[in-house]
Design a protein around this nucleic acid. Structure first.
Lengths: 136, 136
DNA sequence: CTGGGTGCAAACCCTTTGCAATTCG
DNA sequence: CGAATTGCAAAGGGTTTGCACCCAG
């Protein structure tokens, strides 16, 4: 249930910038920071203001179209697959593997309940060295 | 952790500022940002430069004396219990419950191996509403 | 046409750093 | 006394915002 949501608050006009950004995100499975994305687009001749990159990514994130992670103080984005999941990210090249952790979800639930906490969200991310980067 | 490799470990002179900071951390079980800590100390008449707060917290973290978490772009600190564990943090008042998750550790290991990643670290934090804040 | 979208630059926040003044040991 | 430590303020990243201009619908 993600196709169309006629929200009166977000008209989402189609502009050159948004198309370029969406296209870029669709090409990669990996996480990139707003700054990186801005840079890549510029190199391609699809330059746009950094503010626009941030604004667009934010709205996409809010709309649930991209995943956002917080990696040591900076947000990194990635086109999103709908269900809840976690990531195994290469700390060197950004290569990402999507991971489902039903066991973790259950564990989270029980721990929260056990301590009387409600409305609990969890962030679980793995950062390591992917096979390729291990050789370098 | 023997003295063998204590290269960059600072001499750690005892100053009024460090004593105040350490004392504060010992009073609370919860996470606080450097800014909050700076503020609290100032209100107590134990004012010190924000730079000193950061420098001191950093060195304490490096020495393994405090836990550091990254909560949406800002570092939060807490006096530390030595072993590896996770936290269930109240997103309203900062109240924290320490959690051990052997199951999670094992899961992490196997997933990493499965995808050929090495040197994998994981961050798992739970943010929710504690019993007290639920009533407010 | 008209309001959402964009760019630019200034503003913000958190954190770090250069450097002179201070203080512990 | 001398080195470690502090404070201040400026500098540095990342991200957000005010505002005039622009373009998709």
């Amino acid at each position: 249930m993600s196709a169309t949501e006629q929200r009166s608050a977000a008209p989402q006009r189609s502009t050159r910038q948004r198309r370029a950004l969406a296209a870029l995100l669709n090409e990669s499975d990996d996480f990139h920071s707003a700054q990186e994305i801005h840079e890549i687009l510029r190199e391609r001749g699809e330059a746009m203001g950094i503010a626009t990159v941030y604004r667009t990514l934010s709205s996409m994130a809010e709309a649930g179209d991209v995943d956002v992670l917080n990696h040591s103080g900076e947000a990194i984005y990635r086109r999103c697959s709908t269900e809840h999941h976690h990531h195994l990210v290469c700390r060197q090249c950004g290569r990402t593997v999507e991971i489902a952790g039903p066991a973790v979800e259950r564990w989270t639930q029980s721990v929260s309940r056990e301590h009387g906490f409600t409305d609990v969200s969890h962030s679980l991310e793995l950062f390591g060295l992917c096979p390729v980067c291990q050789q370098a």
